[in-house]
Simulated assay, not measured.
Amino acid sequence: MSAVQDNVDAYWTGRAPSYDDYQQRPERLALDQAAWSAVLAAALPAAPADVLDLGTGSGYVALLLAALGHDVTATDLSEGMLERARVHAASAERAPDFRRGDAVAPDFADASFDAITNRYLMWTLREPERALAAWHRLLRPGGVLAVVDSTWFPDGLDRDTTEDFVRLYDAGVRDALPLAAAESIDATRELVVAAGFRDVTVTPLTSILELDRAHGVAPDHEVRLQFLVRGLRP
């Protein structure tokens, strides 16, 4: 793929244990699961639908989608994240099919899915135009694209001074990620529209914001409003 993707994968493999542990913290887990399940259920077709979760990480969204009754395929390129996802899948009543795969060029036949989802992928996605074109092809007519993200670094990626981030999200990586330092979610919306999706909407996720304000966010992170960008394949 590229040295850029190698660096991104290495960073997230290193982060996988702490990232997943934070998402699973018991004092907030049930509240988070309820809030995210509501967001996803409102955005996606009625279950059961064939759903592809891209950049699945440790499988948080994929597992919720499966629990909602969907048939879920989930991919990531970080082996460390996939390892965590498969551990969770082993104890799930209804488990996604976790596979190693590239979100920019998913290896599936056209018109294979009723919905495509991702969370916290767009900001760290190389070649988003190419990726969105691929996602458009993979959806059946009337299929739903639902992506969640925020403007995590509106003042630039220099805000994160952790050693691995500075080393692996180097200048070459930053130059290859056009949404990494976006100042508005409109940058993501515009790419979705340009890819040919219709009825594109942006929904502020106030329920998630309230949880973040009440319970705090991960170390070295700021509370930020997150958004659901949703579009339909004609």
Score class of each variant (00 low, 15 high):
residue 171 A to T: 10
residue 102 D to S: 03
residue 118 N to F: 14
residue 129 E to I: 07
residue 100 R to W: 09
residue 70 H to E: 00
residue 174 R to T: 03
residue 115 A to L: 04
residue 147 V to Q: 00
residue 79 E to F: 06
residue 148 V to L: 03
residue 66 A to S: 11
residue 100 R to D: 00
residue 178 P to T: 14
residue 118 N to E: 02
residue 79 E to W: 09
residue 181 A to T: 15
residue 122 M to S: 07
residue 179 L to C: 01
residue 66 A to Y: 05
residue 126 R to G: 01
residue 122 M to C: 13
residue 97 D to F: 15
residue 139 L to Y: 12
residue 200 V to W: 13
residue 100 R to V: 15
residue 149 D to T: 15
residue 184 S to H: 02
residue 190 E to Y: 07
residue 125 L to D: 02
residue 122 M to D: 04
residue 146 A to I: 11
residue 114 D to M: 08
residue 163 E to S: 11
residue 98 F to C: 04
residue 100 R to A: 06
residue 106 P to Y: 14
residue 72 V to F: 07
residue 88 H to C: 02
residue 92 A to H: 11
residue 172 G to R: 07
residue 61 V to I: 15
residue 131 A to H: 10
residue 68 L to R: 07
residue 185 I to K: 00
residue 173 V to Q: 01
residue 134 A to C: 11
residue 169 Y to Q: 00
residue 64 L to D: 03
residue 155 D to P: 04
residue 165 F to H: 10
residue 115 A to W: 15
residue 83 E to H: 14
residue 201 T to V: 13
residue 157 L to T: 12
residue 150 S to P: 03
residue 109 A to W: 12
residue 108 F to Y: 14
residue 59 G to F: 02
residue 111 A to C: 11
residue 91 S to Y: 12
residue 173 V to I: 06
residue 190 E to A: 08
residue 190 E to C: 03
residue 173 V to G: 01
residue 137 R to Q: 08
residue 120 Y to A: 08
residue 78 S to C: 09
residue 135 W to K: 01
residue 197 F to T: 04
residue 174 R to M: 01
residue 71 D to E: 10
residue 84 R to S: 05
residue 153 F to L: 02
residue 178 P to K: 10
residue 76 D to V: 13
residue 71 D to W: 12
residue 87 V to L: 09
residue 138 L to M: 10
residue 190 E to N: 14
residue 204 P to K: 02
residue 102 D to H: 08
residue 90 A to H: 10
residue 146 A to L: 04
residue 193 V to A: 07
residue 63 L to A: 11
residue 111 A to S: 14
residue 136 H to V: 01
residue 109 A to N: 05
residue 165 F to N: 04
residue 186 D to L: 05
residue 61 V to F: 14
residue 93 E to H: 15
residue 96 P to Y: 10
residue 179 L to A: 01
residue 95 A to E: 00
residue 149 D to R: 10
residue 163 E to A: 10
residue 155 D to C: 03
residue 192 V to D: 08
residue 132 L to A: 12
residue 196 G to Q: 13
residue 150 S to D: 08
residue 94 R to G: 04
residue 163 E to K: 02
residue 121 L to Q: 06
residue 77 L to V: 13
residue 171 A to S: 03
residue 107 D to Y: 13
residue 109 A to Q: 08
residue 194 A to T: 00
residue 75 T to Y: 08
residue 200 V to T: 13
residue 84 R to C: 09
residue 188 T to F: 15
residue 59 G to R: 04
residue 163 E to L: 10
residue 139 L to C: 09
residue 182 A to M: 09
residue 110 D to I: 09
residue 190 E to W: 08
residue 96 P to K: 08
